[in-house]
Amino acid sequence: MRKLLFVIGLGLSLPLAAQGSLAPADYANRQLEDAGQEARAAALMEELRCLVCQGQSIADSDADMAGDMRHLVRERIQRGESPAEIRDYLIERYGEWVSYRPAPERPIFWPLYLAPVLLLLIAGWMVRRRFRRPRP
């Protein structure tokens, strides 16, 4: 990490050093026939993080690995798995890092979801003397 990084848009412009010459997986770039299934898959893919990219969802990445993950998602959806099950399958392996949606049931994310409530309370408290009481 301490080495001098001089990265310009590493995540965007994939260097041409190939990631394999194999054609992309079936469902990497093909939609499911069932529109409802595809919608569920697409929504999930937006929220899964590409493992080899600089902060992109697998839906937005051109990396081969992201293509394989899209294939995995679509195939499992087609088999009847729920998006939550697929997300859990990946979280089991890669941790919460792989999901862009912080899970409200995990304690590590409680501060994130408490923040809006807390901040609004603090804001309210800060202005408590700024306003005149409504006249009766």
């Binding site: 929220e47 969802s57 919460e96 890092w97």
Partner: peptide
């Protein structure tokens, strides 16, 4: 820093 690798992405920002 607390030892967990996590991501906070569009679903969080859009929700709050």
């Amino acid at each position: 820093a607390m030892g967990e690798q996590i991501s906070v992405g569009p679903p969080y920002f859009n929700t709050v």
